[in-house]
């Protein structure tokens, strides 16, 4: 596919809308999508992934209670851990030396909730829509392609996750658990972490055969949540186990968040960021390919 013909496709992919919509010609894909158009064959991408975000927004408006309640899960954990458990422990070893337990656990919960939200939204919802509701079959009968779907769903995960994370950061601020202006970067970092986990989750969801496989998701997420130095410092583990934990994604997210909220930020933080950029890229590519392969047979 040459560049010329793919841009032609983009200019021309609107419906023939005689007499229906002459005043509102079909929206041409935005120029910012130019790069994607060049690297992705035109059949896979129509540049309209935002419509899937609109769809998700409409759905969530009808189930707002469930959406709002997602914010309370990490909050309950914070209250319980920070102010209940916390009194069992005087101080723990943080990035800059001993620190109060609540300030130690809060950034970890922020990272963990970004992961949890993204993974479950991506796997559960994608699988449901893909396998049962057949939403994507209907979408693909239109000019939309699998890349629109993958991007649209990932974007929605991020918007939702970003709202939760933002809310949690405000709560942390209110409880005095943030001690550095670096924390301004916590929200964008949360979004990056969520994107990486959502992309991985979407890719995983395309391999699932039945609801039973969600237990495998649980099997991956649960130990990550419990053992990635969320609740206690890495030094608790014996040496070899420390190395294992240091390879897992949530560990990197937690290190990054703790560094940002305490202000002990070093060059190592960039390494964590790279970890998630790579993870996100692999996830999106695998998810889009698999969706295309499964839906367009």
């Amino acid at each position: 596919m040459t560049r010329e013909s793919s841009t032609q496709a983009s200019r021309n992919d609107g419906p023939d809308t005689d007499g229906l919509d002459t005043a509102n010609p079909p929206a041409a894909p935005k120029s910012s999508n130019g790069l994607l158009f060049r690297i992705i064959p035109p059949g896979l991408y129509a540049g309209r992934s935002h419509v899937l975000v609109e769809r998700s927004y409409l759905v969530s408006k009808r189930a707002w209670m469930s959406v709002i309640s997602g914010f309370f899960e990490p909050l309950f954990f914070l209250l319980s851990l920070g102010f209940g458990f916390g009194q069992l422990v005087t101080t723990v070893e943080g990035p800059g030396g001993p620190m109060p337990y609540a300030a130690f656990v809060a950034p970890a919960l922020l990272a963990a909730s970004a992961m949890n939200g993204a993974v479950f939204e991506a796997t559960f919802n994608l699988f449901f829509k893909f396998k049962y509701a057949k939403v994507y079959d209907a979408v693909l009968a239109t000019p939309m392609g699998p890349v629109d779907i993958a991007l649209g769903e990932a974007a929605w995960c991020l918007i939702r996750g970003g709202l939760y994370s933002g809310g949690f950061i405000v709560v942390m601020l209110g409880f005095g658990l943030i001690s550095s202006p670096w924390a301004l970067l916590a929200l964008p970092v949360c979004l990056l972490v969520a994107l990486a986990f959502a992309a991985a989750g979407m890719a995983a969801a395309t391999f699932m055969r039945s609801w039973h496989d969600f237990d495998l998701v649980q099997l991956a997420v649960m130990p990550l949540f419990l053992f990635s130095t969320t609740f206690y410092p890495l030094s608790v583990y014996p040496g070899w186990l420390q190395t294992v934990v240091q390879c897992t994604p949530l560990y990197h997210a937690i290190e990054l968040m703790r560094a940002l909220t305490t202000g002990y930020v070093g060059w190592g933080a960039l390494g964590h960021v790279v970890y998630f950029v790579v993870m996100a890229a692999i996830g999106v590519v695998v998810a889009a390919r698999r969706l295309g392969k499964l839906l367009l047979t």
Binding site: D215, Q218, L219, M222, P223, L226, F227, F231, Y232, V236
Partner: peptide
Amino acid sequence: RATVISNFLQPVLFLLAMGVGFGSQV
């Protein structure tokens, strides 16, 4: 098989993480 993880494994992981891991700080 589908219930093994949530019914049997998850509580044990909790015991390890909270009881042993977090407990080491208490």
